[in-house]
Amino acid sequence: MDQAIVVEQLVKRYGDFPAVDGITFAVPHGTIFGLLGRNGAGKTTTLECCIGLGKPTSGSVRVLGLDPTRARDLARMRPRIGVQLQATSLPEKANVREVLVLYAAYYGIAPRAAEMAERVGLGDKLDRQIAQMSGGEQQRLALALALQHDPDVLFLDEPTAGMDAFGRRILWNEVERLRDAGKSIVLTTHYIEEAERLSDRICVIQRGKIVAEAPPAELVARYGGDATVSIVADGFAPGESLDGLGTWTLAGAKWTLATRGEPGLALAAIVTHANEIGATITSLDMHRPTLEDAFIAITGETIGEAE
């Protein structure tokens, strides 16, 4: 079996409201799959259906070939998956060491409290109680709990929400290390940078539907639009030599070229032309399409923007 996770025509309704509305995707073994979408897009709901926390209204989910809606399959699935939930909490009076020891017992493995705490940057906080930990520290502990039993498949729901740059770096490194060790990982995020850096494939979800799915570079190439080069220069006008590069537009004093070609080459040609005609360059700007451009084009909105 070559797919770690297969989701087919997944629908999850709350009352009449379709939180997830016919989602289909597959995650090959040893890859990172990023679910990207705005608040309320249906990322958490999709994830919960994968791990047995939510019962799909219709459609099917298979994780390692197991069906999370069947009790016996779910029981076989549990030791093999690791989960970091978006909405989770641990007993307030518990400390880091105790939680790691208890969870090790749940999985029937030898506790590795000190090692795991070290791995997520909580090495000096083993005796810290949950109630006294910051949000980011709790997230790190949640990650340690997801990893301790060395699962084959990881589900991470906004794992870096509330984490500082250092915590984010730890998580990114862990996730990449795990993928290289052959684990399959599904992760949801709001951070385009995170999705782009980590995901082998990105799935953009909007209002419960998949609106695009491809490797990040392909999404950018397909939806990111043209690269642009903008120039403000006294006496500048695009001459014949620049016509073949793409489409020119003028806004105020600023000429902008939209090009499908390599923007670096276009930039060089534009500078040469400006020098030839003696135009004094005031400002010069190049922009390659990014995943964010692709995301805006795909969803017709920026992340976090109100409808």
Binding site: I51, G52, L53, P79, L85, Y106, G108
Partner: peptide
């Protein structure tokens, strides 16, 4: 309500 149950439900306990 504190989401403690859903967390342990995910484990093999």
């Amino acid at each position: 309500e504190k989401h403690l149950l859903r967390r342990v439900y995910l484990t093999p306990m």
